[in-house]
Amino acid sequence: MVLWHGPTPRVAMESSTSSGDIVALKMIVMMKQVPDAEEIFIDPVKYTLNRSQARGIINPSDENALEAALKIKEKEGGDITVISMGPPQAESAIIECMGRGADRGILITDRVFAAADTYATSLTLAAAVKKIGDFDIIFAGESTTDSGTGHVGPGVAEFLGIDQVTYTVDSRIESGMLTAERELEDGIEVVSTKPPVLVTVLINSNLPRRSRLRLKVDAIRKGVEKWDHDTLSLPVDWVGLKGSPTLVGALKIPEERKRESRPVKLEEIPALVDELVKKGIIKIGDDA
């Protein structure tokens, strides 16, 4: 295994040499199980999203985050821990990640975590990262398909007080530094930074590999660790709905206005334009 020569302040791990500052690269991937967007439909009466028939999948950009970590692991060695916060059934998504090559899976699951907003979620995940202990890089998908805020990755970095590199499409290790390409509106920005660092990965930035039978069988044998608020020593008031400052005032779907059409004669047009002006729908001015 190629060892990590980074200027990390981490204490030496079991694979360290006598110098005490060379340790195996430790990566964490944050993953969320989301309902498959193709199987969600809008309740025709209540206008809410019906997810009951949708199967759970790995959030698409989290697949890219895992793939980014796996590529680095292939080149540099090291190990990957996948953490996910969600209901017990999210375990299958973690097994899938381990089937692709992650070494360890942790499911952060507890009824008191339910209905957490991005603030409480970031806090909970940051607490989990702290409990894991040493790490070099945290990978996270840029945003989830079922909420789309993009808050959680950066939120975790803030709670941990570490650097973050967002919107990346590629990342690699170069002489102890993490070098990542950020896809921005006006081009690609190449950033190098010292670990520990949190990296958010854009959807479709790489081709996620499929899982392997061998690794999945091993993953099932190894199992997924389950952590609750006790494990994380988090007060109940800090997590879930209680720990969430976000208030949703209302959720509405604007009513579709019926539009009418009829054929008109050419000479009717001036009168129609006058009517549109009168109703304030269009404006005719010198600057028009």
């Binding site: 299958s92 089937g99 499929r210 899982s211 392997r212 039978l213 999945k216």
Partner: peptide, 8 residues
């Protein structure tokens, strides 16, 4: 042992 999502 049930493994899904893998083609032999």
């Amino acid at each position: 042992t049930l493994v899904t999502g893998v083609t032999v």
